[in-house]
Amino acid sequence: MWLTSKIKQVLLVLKPGVVTLKYPFVPRPVPDTFRGAPYWDHTKCVGCGGCANHCPARTIMVRDICQEIRVMMYDGSRCTYCGRCADVCPENAITMTNKYELATDDKYDITETMELFMLTCQRCGRCYEMETKNAIDRMDLRGYRYDNIEARTVIRKTTDQFEPKVFQETAQFKRPEKL
């Protein structure tokens, strides 16, 4: 009993041999469906902000610095690579690449910023009308949005509900260093 199971164990070990991969000396290829670092195609992006509203980790910030320019920033340091942004993007401007060696000591290596030129409606002079029912409003993007890009915080308030106080608070917010 004891001996036979020991023989079986020896066979169990000998048969597969060495299976350890040679990584990092030999790169490990990943499947096409892999969810690596997301990539934004600025030529396709329409700046709807759907990705910013669906990101569970709040890594995508939107700031309208003026009527025509919307800045979108992706902060990879918090990203969980769930790929939800790529799912919801109506223009397929976001793709999950196969990059996974993303460790870095400079957070700007994994930060992406886009400045998008937004059109103004020729009829009313606004980006779009502040109704309550259209698709963009449902995405919580009424008016201009002003996330705190410096502090990398999503405030998710737009001009109709924006308070400078909230902005100030997030800018000054510091996690207590000493508990």
Partner: peptide, 21 residues
């Protein structure tokens, strides 16, 4: 060792070894 092939399969199916989303 045996488990590893499931993990690789999951990577292919879901895009990640764990936290499949």
């Amino acid at each position: 060792r045996v488990r590893e092939q499931i993990m690789w399969f999951c990577e292919k199916l879901t895009g990640n070894r764990k936290t499949y989303g």
